[in-house]
């Protein structure tokens, strides 16, 4: 795998703040110990560890994969930008293959395929650490929404 293309300087600075918030402050993400494995222009690879908070019966609920993939796919859009702008998810499709296991790492990756007319097209994937596919996703995001109030992530 080649080295990732570096982020734009303003985006790199914003990502430092996001990483600090996700690691130390955010009530959802802090408990999953997010660890960035690869961050580059328009691409992200992050490791998280789902907790028992998200169990439905003895399995991690598939909705958590949707939450994680929406998050990382929005971040992949930011990673493709020259300067930070608010985003709003337009639509998101998640296809579920298998369940994550609480306490075991999940690897989430997202690639921003491109941005046209302020709409980004992103695909994502979640796998367990042994490579088992958990879910795939495809999403579109509006870049530069007029009001920050309509941005979600």
């Amino acid at each position: 795998m080649s080295n990732p293309e570096p982020l734009a300087p303003g985006i790199a600075q914003a990502f430092q703040g996001i990483q600090a918030a996700f690691t130390n402050e955010h009530p959802l993400f802090t408990q999953m110990a997010p660890k960035p494995l690869r961050v580059g222009r328009g691409e992200l690879l992050i490791r998280v560890t789902p907790t028992e908070t998200f169990l439905d019966g003895d399995r991690v609920h598939g909705g958590l994969m949707t939450i994680l993939l929406d998050t990382i796919m929005g971040m992949a859009t930011w990673a493709a930008l020259e300067e930070f702008q608010p985003l709003a998810t337009i639509n998101l499709q998640t296809d579920t293959y298998d369940h994550a296991v609480a306490g075991r790492h999940v690897i989430c990756e997202a690639i921003c395929e491109g941005i046209a007319d302020d709409v980004s097209i992103v695909r994502g994937k979640a796998t367990s650490e042994d490579g088992t596919l958990l879910a795939t996703a495809a999403g579109t995001f509006m870049v530069g929404t007029r009001s920050a109030q309509v941005s979600r992530i």
Partner: peptide
């Protein structure tokens, strides 16, 4: 705002 993924999960 509610997280888009949380909305979808619910």
């Amino acid at each position: 705002a509610l997280h888009g993924g949380v909305i979808s999960a619910f």
